[in-house]
Write a protein that binds this DNA or RNA. Structure first.
Length: 310
DNA sequence: TTCCGACAGTGGGGTCGCAAT
DNA sequence: ATTGCGACCCCACTATCGGAA
């Protein structure tokens, strides 16, 4: 029962044949109800029954007793969903321990795949969403994933303004496919900024040159370590960058933080600047989902500081 | 012929549990 | 007691290959 996955795009649009939903930053959950039996599963079919007992119980208490749902389990930090907060719950495998957890979770349900023994994946999305309304009573912790028709650009702007992760665009007439599809698209609110390159890690496996770049930014005259970026370069860029790095090699870390104990890394004079895209800063001051976008030759390394949203 | 989808492989942060040190 | 490692969650991205268009 593979879930349908969305394709990332930077090509944002509005269109009457599409609907737009908030992108929730949590854990994907497929839920099954067959009579008295309820099951919660991750995207990779791992059991979640004891991880989220309140959701398990809420689904078991519904009058409808034969369905398969798709949705996202989330925790909140303010008005935005917070994956880092959810992580305090993610790994719990014991029902009692989960019940003691202070992390409140909600199941945002956005699709219905089976109903009364029938596979309804080939029905249009709008029809499935309509049937979903008859199956689920939306009371916490079960929540409706609200959608808007057509207004993709407005949705996207609003989502980013609110600090949300982005928007999922779905073709309104599409069927449910058990794989990644272009009928669902991710409009992600992006963060990007320059970082100083202060070192690199050694490559693993078939990788050549280096594994990842060690990134930093200046704060009060010191170079602060901000994590690594290890994807986004093609082979040619990788080779060219590696040559630049080896010419700047030095033995001591340029970072003010405690990076001296890191294993398998090399340090360099911190005068190269690169642009990096990422989803957010972690609580630990590192980049989440970082990818290399390119070198910046027009920026002096000492001008690189952490940019904060206005 | 060209393009697209699927897969493997490499890279990231974070958490937890268990084995090795 | 500390460290390292794999298994999970969340990913992004490149290279490659075979079949669709």
């Amino acid at each position: 029962m593979d879930p349908m996955l969305a394709t990332l795009t930077a090509d944002y649009f509005s269109h009457p044949d599409w609907i737009f939903e908030r992108k929730f930053d949590g854990e994907r959950c497929i839920s099954f109800r067959d009579g008295n039996r309820t099951r919660l599963r991750t995207r990779n079919n791992k059991p979640l029954d004891s991880t989220y007992p309140e959701i398990f119980d809420a689904l078991g208490a519904l009058a409808a007793d034969n369905f398969v749902l798709d949705g996202e389990i989330v925790a909140f930090e303010g008005t935005a969903t917070s994956f880092s907060r959810l992580q305090e719950r993610l790994q719990i495998r014991d029902r009692e321990e989960a019940e003691r957890s202070p992390v409140r979770v909600y199941y945002y349900i956005f699709d219905l795949m089976y109903l009364e023994g029938y596979d309804i994946c080939s029905l249009p999305l709008r029809t499935r969403k309509s049937l979903l309304e008859d199956v689920v009573v939306f009371e916490d912790p079960l929540r409706r994933s609200a959608h808007r028709d057509g207004a993709g650009l407005e949705c996207y702007r609003e989502a980013c303004r609110k600090g949300w992760e982005g928007v999922i665009a779905k073709r309104a007439g599409s069927r449910y496919l058990h794989k990644r599809s272009q009928d669902w698209l991710k409009f992600k609110c992006t963060n990007e900024q320059e970082f100083v390159i202060g070192g690199y890690s050694e490559p693993q496996g078939s990788r050549t040159g280096f594994g990842a770049l060690l990134l930093g930014y200046y704060e009060e005259g010191r170079l602060r370590y901000a994590g690594k970026v290890g994807t986004g370069f093609d082979d040619r860029t990788l080779d060219a960058l590696y040559r630049e790095l080896t010419r700047r090699e030095r033995s001591d870390p340029p970072f003010g933080d405690d990076t001296g104990s890191m294993k398998g890394v090399h340090f360099v004079d911190p005068d190269l600047v690169c642009e990096v895209g990422f989803t957010e800063w972690t609580g630990d001051g590192k980049l989440r989902h970082p990818r290399f976008l390119g070198l910046r030759t027009d920026k002096d390394a000492h001008e690189v500081v952490r940019e904060r949203p206005a």
